[in-house]
Simulated assay, not measured.
Amino acid sequence: MKISVSSHDELLAAVPHMFGFTPHESLVLYPFAPGLPRVRVDLPTSQTARDGVWESLEVPFGRHARPGAVVAIICLTTDRSHAERASEDLRSRLESIDVTTPLRLWADDTQWCDLDTHESGQRTQAARTRIDAQMVAAGQALPIASRSAMAASLVGDRDPIERLMPAARTASAASNPPAEHAWTMERLHRFHADGFTLNDLDAARMLLAVSSVPVRDDVWENISQRTAQTHVALWTNLTRRAPDDVRAAPATLLSFASWIGGDGAKAWCALDQVPNAQEYPMARLMSAALTAGVNPSEWEAQTARLHDINELARDLARTLQAPQGPLHRPAPEM
């Protein structure tokens, strides 16, 4: 996502578009050139918390930092003193890996201040309107109110499909795996073409089908930067509607599609929908990739060399150490 800004005010107005929601009490890293990830973390308010932020950022920034790397540190908080301490602490740590930070910016809902030059100003609706218009013209949806609102958008009415699952399982058992596989891929391609929401019967059948790893892997292989938008729409809807026992696959496919499409925050929110009790290797792989700050372009580049989804997954896993124990969401959102 490219955003053109010409002032501090416009830079602040662009931040919600980077993550799909409006951050509050947050620290944001905004790179001035391609390569480094855009990151949001909860604003650290103690030295222990600042140490924890660096622990979560050192690997992804060390992975991508190149000579001359430059980022802005933006603190969005009502407490300017916390912004001063957190941004100065992070600046010194970034400099240790040759990332320079020429801008430390503090803002609350109404005003902003450059913490180095002490230049300050008001946050204006005019700047928000200009950036919103730029993003709408580029085909981007407007951001929602908060990360919690984004997470809530993935939880819907799951009872209708829950009631259909016994009959859907019986129908699936009476069919055969190749037939269900073929139906799933045909239904997926039809959704790419028309974008119509699946009715409850088709949704139940699709959720059962992708709970089979070979079927899920063929769907996974269909996700690319070209198809990410329609996959996000499909798997967002099915994650909202899926009962616990069939939600791991759609939620993880949504996480992958969001990541490939450049929406790291939604990728994390989707992983939060994988039921905690489930051990799901694809979700662990996504968690590891997001934690390490892997750029989606790395996956896209590998698809030109490796054409089998399992080879691609193994290749990515070799470069990462997947988290052990229950799935969890670490601090950074990229």
Results as ranks from 00 to 15, higher is better:
Lys2Arg: 15
Ile3Phe: 07
Val5Met: 03
Asp9Cys: 06
Glu10Arg: 08
Leu11Gln: 10
Leu11Met: 14
Ala14Lys: 04
Ala14Gln: 05
Ala14Thr: 05
Met18Gly: 08
Phe21Lys: 05
Glu25Val: 04
Val28Gly: 08
Val39Glu: 02
Leu43Phe: 03
Ser46Met: 09
Ser46Gly: 09
Ser46Val: 10
Arg50Asp: 01
Trp54Phe: 08
Leu57Val: 10
Val59Asp: 03
Gly62Cys: 09
Arg63Met: 08
His64Trp: 14
His64Gly: 07
Ala65Arg: 12
Arg66Ile: 12
Ile73Asp: 01
Ile73Gln: 07
Ile74Ala: 05
Ile74Leu: 13
Leu76Tyr: 03
Thr77Glu: 05
Arg85Met: 14
Ala86Lys: 04
Glu88Tyr: 11
Asp98Pro: 01
Val99Ile: 15
Thr100His: 14
Thr101Cys: 15
Thr101Asn: 06
Leu105Val: 02
Asp108Val: 03
Thr110Tyr: 11
Cys113Asn: 02
Leu115Arg: 07
Arg123Pro: 03
Thr124Lys: 07
Asp132Tyr: 09
Gln134Ile: 12
Gly139Phe: 06
Leu142Asn: 11
Ala145Thr: 15
Ser146Arg: 06
Arg147Trp: 10
Ser148Trp: 09
Ser148Val: 14
Met150Thr: 02
Ala151Ile: 13
Ser153Cys: 11
Leu154Asn: 04
Val155Phe: 09
Asp157Thr: 05
Arg158Tyr: 01
Arg158Glu: 13
Asp159Asn: 10
Ile161Pro: 00
Leu164Arg: 12
Leu164Tyr: 00
Ala174Lys: 08
Ala174Asp: 10
Pro177Tyr: 05
Leu188Cys: 03
His192Met: 14
Ala193Val: 03
Ala193His: 13
Ala193Gly: 06
Asp194Gly: 05
Gly195Glu: 08
Arg205Phe: 01
Leu208Arg: 02
Leu208Glu: 03
Ala209Cys: 04
Val210Ser: 02
Ser211Trp: 00
Val213Ser: 12
Val213Arg: 15
Val215Ala: 06
Val215Met: 08
Ser224Thr: 15
Gln225Ser: 14
Thr227Lys: 05
Ala228Asn: 03
Ala228Pro: 00
Leu238Gln: 02
Thr239Asp: 08
Arg241Ser: 07
Ala242Lys: 01
Pro243Lys: 10
Val246Ile: 13
Val246Ser: 03
Ala248Tyr: 01
Ala248Gln: 11
Pro250Val: 11
Ala251Tyr: 00
Leu253Val: 06
Ser258His: 01
Ile260Leu: 12
Gly262Arg: 06
Trp268Cys: 01
Ala277Glu: 11
Gln278Ser: 07
Tyr280Pro: 00
Tyr280Arg: 03
Ser287Glu: 08
Ser287Thr: 04
Leu290Arg: 01
Asn295Arg: 12
Asn295Gly: 01
Glu298Met: 09
Glu300Pro: 00
Ala301Leu: 13
Arg305Gln: 13
Asn310Gly: 12
Arg314Phe: 11
Thr319Ala: 15
Ala322Met: 14
Pro323Val: 09
Gly325Leu: 07
Pro330His: 07
Ala331Gly: 10
Glu333Leu: 15
